[in-house]
Design a protein around this nucleic acid. Structure first.
Lengths: 215, 215
DNA sequence: ATCTGACTACGGGTTTACCCGTAAATAACT
DNA sequence: AGTTATTTACGGGTAAACCCGTAGTCAGAT
């Protein structure tokens, strides 16, 4: 029994390339293809494939959202991202959308086959390059943040943490046994230091600079 | 010339264990140790070691903040995290703090040596287990989020994206050529769907669920 | 002993956000 | 043709956030 694959990519060249890879194969068989989101959904519903090979940017459509949607309708579907983006954001988004594999377009034939087999087995596959990129990205994020390093006073940190818990000024005041006005002052100073214009801005700053992330 | 190492860990057992690993060694030499943050800072300033082996939780002190601090004062220092936590949050936080390596305490002697050598060379080292954990974590985050998946209307998404750019309701209204009241409605609905109590809550929800992360 | 930084707090004002209900136009699906 | 979802918008109000200046206390540094 061959593995039934559907290809989703807006570039015909890519689809043909992959078909060439896998045609006349005893293991894999491409049972459908699509160049946009709408077609993809109908083809997949019709063919009910084992695996979907999915590009990230399908013309106007978003492969990540499409993946999310497909898996919402059919959670047993296995999606493998096939893309040229070796980018942390994309890998993360795609895996979180529910993709079971992530392979670069410049991979060799064996890697693609290996990915398909692994995913078919219910496991998760990511190429070596992808793994490397993810780890290096984590390590090098630190460089991007050195520039924007601001120091907060202990009290400011406390207030900041509570802001990040969706508390209002009043609630923060109660929790720290101080006046709301004091909380306002700390907040003002925090906004001054971070360049934020509101609580929302403070949260965004905290996220961008990964403050208070570690538990 | 031996590599000069300072050990920071609040458990004497661990310090002794590592010393046993590396004593009478031609390659490595432990020139100092510390059980808390204050001692660590002074020892490191005195000894100016090549590498610091650092635990994450040093009693009351936070190894992550300590690392950040040390590297702020002396950016050329190489810090290797040595810990039992094989946890995404910790790895990320530590690498972002500027650590050049991350090794688990249950690693074998060779892995520790390899880590020290790699870091000494100016490269970054993380054990195989750590790499595996990070990748699996990324892939499995999706499971935690399936539960909390809400669908937004296109317009709601637009508004949401602008909220995440620190715009006020008025600014969002101007940008979308609609009334502030309309923005308020969308926001109300977003807060309804997400359970957020304010804009801040919406931002936090977006972060936790990694919405709109991919560019 | 003075000075700086951090934390505290108030007054008084403006603006923005949030709450609640209502409701019309449009599109889409049935 | 009728229901439903989406987007649009208003009115009227409350509560919270934000702005700006002032000012006392207390610890630690010079």
């Amino acid at each position: 029994m061959k593995m039934r694959i559907v290809l989703v990519d807006d570039h015909k060249v890519v689809r043909d390339g992959v078909k060439l890879f896998l045609q006349n194969d005893e293991e894999f068989s491409i049972v459908g293809e699509a160049g946009n989101a709408v077609t993809a959904l109908s083809v997949i519903q019709r063919e009910n494939p084992d695996v979907v090979l999915m590009d990230l940017s399908i013309g106007e459509d978003d492969g990540i959202e499409l993946t999310r949607k497909m898996l919402g309708e059919n959670p047993d579907l296995r999606v493998v991202a096939l893309t040229m983006h070796n980018d942390y954001q994309y890998v993360q988004a795609m895996l979180e959308a529910g993709a079971k594999g992530y392979v670069l377009k410049n991979c060799d034939e064996n890697e693609l086959r290996e990915a398909l087999r692994t995913v078919m087995n219910g496991d998760i596959y990511y190429g070596e390059e992808v793994t490397k990129m993810v780890m290096n990205n984590m390590a090098h994020q630190q460089k991007n943040e050195k520039t924007a390093s601001v120091t907060f006073t202990p009290r400011e940190k406390e207030v900041y943490k509570l802001i990040l818990q969706e508390l209002t000024n009043q609630e923060i005041a109660d929790k720290l046994f101080i006046s709301v006005r004091t909380v306002e002052v700390h907040k003002r100073n925090l906004m001054e230091k971070t360049g934020a214009k509101s609580s929302t801005g403070l949260v965004l700053y905290a996220v961008k600079n990964n403050l208070f992330d570690h538990p």
